[in-house]
Design a protein around this nucleic acid. Structure first.
Lengths: 265, 265
DNA sequence: GGGGGATACTTTACGGCATAAGGAGTTGTT
DNA sequence: AACAACTCCTTATGCCGTAAAGTATCCCCC
C-alpha cells in the first residue's frame, strides 16, 4: 500500500535528464551493455502504468527486462533517480505547440485538457513529489508552453507567476482526483457508483444527524445527478472532469478581469 | 525515501473516524488498555510532523508510546487506517467558523490562508492520496465550511462544485509546493537560495542553450527578485505563498464575473 | 477468594523492499 | 596472452508491515 514521493539526488538526476544523444561508445572495453537508461525508464513506466507506483520495485523493472534488480544500478543511481527520469519522460508527451489563432483563452483551455488526459494516462506521476522540482527538459518545456499559450493575455510577471502556478495546480489536482478514482476502481474491482453507494449507506448509519451537521453539503449533493445504476466505473471520473472544466473556466474569467484591471495583483 | 498514498479499508476506517465518545468500559475483563486510538493517532502525527511520512512506521509510533509495533494493532487495524485517522485529525484543526461580515470574498480568502498554513504545519498530509475520499467528520466539516464561506456569492450548484474543487486544489497544491520546499530545506540542511543557486549553475552547464530554448521562462525568472544572500530558508516558500495569494485572487475575480454573468458554466 | 476467560501486549517469524559488497563472466586494448 | 574495464549476478544487511502464537493482567462469577 505504500507508494511515494521521494526525490532523487538532483546532482545525479540532472546529468541523466539532460544527457545528449548517446555517444557511439568509442574505445571502451567490457561487454556491450544490453540495457540502456532509456530502456530502463521505459520499463519503469510500463510497470507503473500497468501495476501502479506501489508495484514499482527495482526487482519488477529488472524482471521486465530479463535482468536482476542489481543490473539496473549500472545505469541508474537508484530508484529515486529512476523516478525522476520517468517523471520527465511522461511530461515529454505533452504537446509543445498550440494553435493560438483563436486567442489565448482557447489555447490555454486546449493545453489544460491535453495535460489532464496525459496525466490520466500515467496516474502515478501525480503521486510524485513536486518538492524542489527536478527541472528536467520536459518539465521546463511544459512550463515554457504554458507561458507561450498565455502570452497573448498580456499578464505582468507577478500576476503571470500566480496564474501559471494556479493553472498547473488545478490541472494536477483535478487530474489526481480523477485518476485516483479510476485507479481505485480498477484496483478494487468496485465501480464508482457502487463504492459511492456503499459509503453513503455506511455514513448514514454512523452519522444519522448528517443532514443537520452538514446542511450545505447535503443540499449540494442532493442537487447532483445521483449515480444511476450503470453509470459504473466512470462516474466520479466524469464528475471530476466536469468540475475541472468549470474551475478552469472560472480561473480564466479571473484572468480576463485581472488583465482588464491591472491594479490588483 | 518511499512515502505514500495508500488508502485504508474504508469499512474499517469509517467506524473509527466517526466513533463517538469512548464508552466508559462497562463490564469488560482483561488488563486496562494503556493506550487509546487517540493517543496512537497523536503519536503518529508527532512522528510524521517531526520526521516526515517516510519515517512513519508502526515501530516508530509504538516506540514513541513505549510499546512495540504490534501493540498498536489492538487499537487500529493497520497502518493505512491509522493514516486515515491522522489525516482527518489534522483537518480538524481548520476553523469551522468565519466572520462573514466583510463579505464572502474576504471570508474565503481568510479561510484559504488558514488552510494553507495548517497544511504547512503538517506537510505530510499533502502526500496522502485523495482518491475516494475517506469522508471523516473533519474532512466533511471542512467542505461544509468552504460552502458556508462561499455562500454569499450566490453560485449555482454546478458552478459551485467547480469553484469549491478549484479552491481546494489551489490550496492543497500551493501548500504542497511550499511545504516541500520547507521540508527539503530542513532535511538536507541546504537553504532554499543555496539550493536554487546550485541547481541554476548546474543547469547552465548542462543546457548552455537554456535562454534560447526557454525564452519566456528566462524572461519571467530574470524579472523575479533574485534570492539575496540571507533570504535563506524561506525564499522558495515565500515565493510560493505569494503565487498562492495571486492565484487565489484571480480565481475569486473569476467567481465574481461568473456570478455577474450566470450564463457560462 | 479463587478459577476462567477475555483482553493487552510481547516475541518471533516471514516475505518484500532498496541497495552495499564482492565475485564471475565478457570484451576491447596492449 | 595478459590486463583492465565493464556488465551483470549472488549474497547479505537492515529496514518494513503484519501474521501467529505466547504471556501477563485484570474482571466477573461462582
Amino acid at each position: 500500500m505504500t507508494v511515494f514521493a521521494g526525490q532523487g539526488d538532483a546532482r545525479r538526476s540532472m546529468p541523466l535528464l539532460w544527457r545528449g544523444p548517446e555517444e557511439p561508445r568509442t574505445g571502451r572495453s567490457g561487454p556491450k551493455p544490453a540495457l540502456s537508461v532509456d530502456a530502463i525508464v521505459a520499463a519503469g513506466i510500463a510497470v507503473a502504468d500497468a501495476e501502479g507506483l506501489a508495484a514499482l520495485s527495482m526487482r519488477a523493472v529488472g524482471e521486465r527486462l530479463g535482468r536482476t534488480a542489481m543490473a539496473l544500478y549500472t545505469y541508474v543511481p537508484g530508484k529515486a533517480e529512476l523516478l525522476d527520469l520517468m517523471h520527465d519522460r511522461v511530461l515529454a508527451e505533452l504537446p509543445t505547440d498550440h494553435d493560438r489563432a483563436d486567442g489565448w483563452r482557447a489555447a490555454t483551455t486546449a493545453w489544460a485538457e491535453e495535460a489532464f488526459t496525459c496525466y490520466l494516462r500515467h496516474p502515478w506521476v501525480l503521486q510524485i513529489s513536486q518538492a524542489r522540482p527536478v527541472m528536467g527538459p520536459a518539465e521546463l518545456g511544459a512550463m515554457e508552453t504554458v507561458l507561450r499559450v498565455l502570452d497573448g493575455a498580456g499578464l505582468e510577471p507577478p500576476l503571470l507567476r500566480g496564474v501559471v502556478a494556479a493553472l498547473w495546480q488545478l490541472v494536477r489536482g483535478m487530474a489526481r482526483t480523477a485518476a485516483e478514482a479510476h485507479v481505485a476502481a480498477a484496483d478494487t474491482g468496485i465501480a464508482d457508483d457502487e463504492w459511492w453507494y456503499a459509503r453513503s449507506a455506511q455514513l448514514a448509519e454512523l452519522a444519522p444527524d448528517f443532514a443537520e451537521r452538514f446542511p450545505l453539503l447535503t443540499a449540494l449533493e442532493s442537487g447532483a445527478a445521483a449515480p444511476a445504476p450503470g453509470d459504473g466505473a466512470g462516474y466520479l471520473e466524469d464528475r471530476t472532469r466536469e468540475a475541472f472544466r468549470t474551475g478552469l473556466a472560472v480561473l480564466l474569467d479571473g484572468v480576463e478581469t485581472a488583465v482588464a484591471r491591472p491594479g490588483r495583483s
